[in-house]
């Protein structure tokens, strides 16, 4: 099913990372697309910018940021947005995404994707900011569901309904991080299939996949390993509901070779075609 913006299924991409620069420049690998971390390229005119220009010439590029801070109660940072907009022009970015979170307040930045309390107050607040930001950027904003490690007691919405309502109120879209759904479901004890089943399909423009680290008491979204099978099963479910959506594999710690990361991304193709396993077998994921 197509998203409401008519944005294409770009295929299987990976995040553009420094350790892969030499390989990409030398080998020019066959690759569907790249996602860049916006902040890594906003303030540099050095080698990262040079490599980015080479990549933009050959591959479709999507921008993904971590500092939009749509949930913060600080004023909207228009200086940041200005640079984001300039970078989008330079990269001919197909779209720009960030996270449903806040990163700092009182003029500080924690450089983490911090959880929102899912309340009516938060919904009004985030909706207001999303509209302002989309208006400034002159394009829709796409927000990713973050991995979270705590829930606020005062939350009256669950995350998926909050996100769905936000899209209704603002016209924003969703970058659905399937690994994050899984991580948060483990940490908070909900059914990840309920989450992906409730997300409005026509709002999703991109999927994220990644590995994580299970600490026993909780899971950390470390992007440090292969995608686990439970996450692949969730991805299969998403594909069955939503059809082909641009899918991106993130790997940010202990990053292996380009070929290994690319091969992990291409595995997603297997879950677009393989028959469904036992219905809702993901229900057993967190039954304990």
């Amino acid at each position: 099913m197509a998203n409401r913006w008519g944005l294409p299924d770009l295929g299987f991409g990976i995040g553009l990372r420094t350790v892969h620069f030499p390989h990409i420049l030398a080998e020019r690998p066959v690759m569907d697309w790249f996602e860049i971390l916006s902040e890594n390229f906003m303030d540099t005119g050095g080698r990262p910018a040079y490599v980015l220009d080479q990549v933009v010439e050959r591959y479709p590029v999507v921008m993904h940021g971590v500092s939009m801070s749509v949930g913060s109660t600080d004023p909207v940072n228009f200086e940041y947005l200005k640079k984001l907009k300039q970078l989008a022009r330079r990269t001919k970015a197909r779209w720009i995404s960030d996270h449903l979170c806040w990163t700092g307040v009182s003029g500080l930045n924690t450089h983490d994707l911090l959880p929102m309390p899912y309340t009516d107050e938060s919904l009004r607040h985030v909706a207001g900011r999303v509209k302002i930001i989309a208006d400034y950027l002159e394009r829709p904003v796409f927000l990713e569901n973050p991995s979270t490690y705590l829930e606020f007691s005062e939350s009256t919405w669950n995350e998926w309904d909050f996100l769905a309502e936000l899209t209704e109120r603002t016209g924003c879209g969703i970058l659905l991080d399937v690994n994050n759904v899984y991580v948060s479901s483990f940490n908070h004890g909900f059914d990840p299939f309920d989450y992906v089943d409730r997300i409005p399909v026509d709002r999703v423009v991109q999927i994220h996949l990644a590995g994580h680290t299970n600490k026993g008491t909780h899971i950390l979204d470390t992007h440090s390993d292969h995608v686990v099978d439970d996450v692949w099963q969730l991805y299969r479910r998403v594909y069955q509901r939503m059809g082909g959506i641009a899918t991106l594999l993130e790997w940010d710690e202990a990053i292996p070779s380009f070929d290994t990361v690319h091969a992990e991304a291409l595995k997603a193709g297997n879950y677009r075609t393989a028959p469904e396993q036992e219905a809702r077998d993901g229900r057993a994921i967190h039954a304990a």
Binding site: T73, W102, L108, E121, R124, G128, I132
Partner: peptide, 24 residues
């Protein structure tokens, strides 16, 4: 003109300042 900031969210602001203070 377009608003440069959404409506105030006083309780949300308190919670964010609290969490950030604890983190730092």
């Amino acid at each position: 003109s377009m608003p440069r900031s959404p409506a105030e969210a006083p309780h949300l602001g308190r919670l964010q300042r609290w969490m950030q203070a604890c983190m730092m």
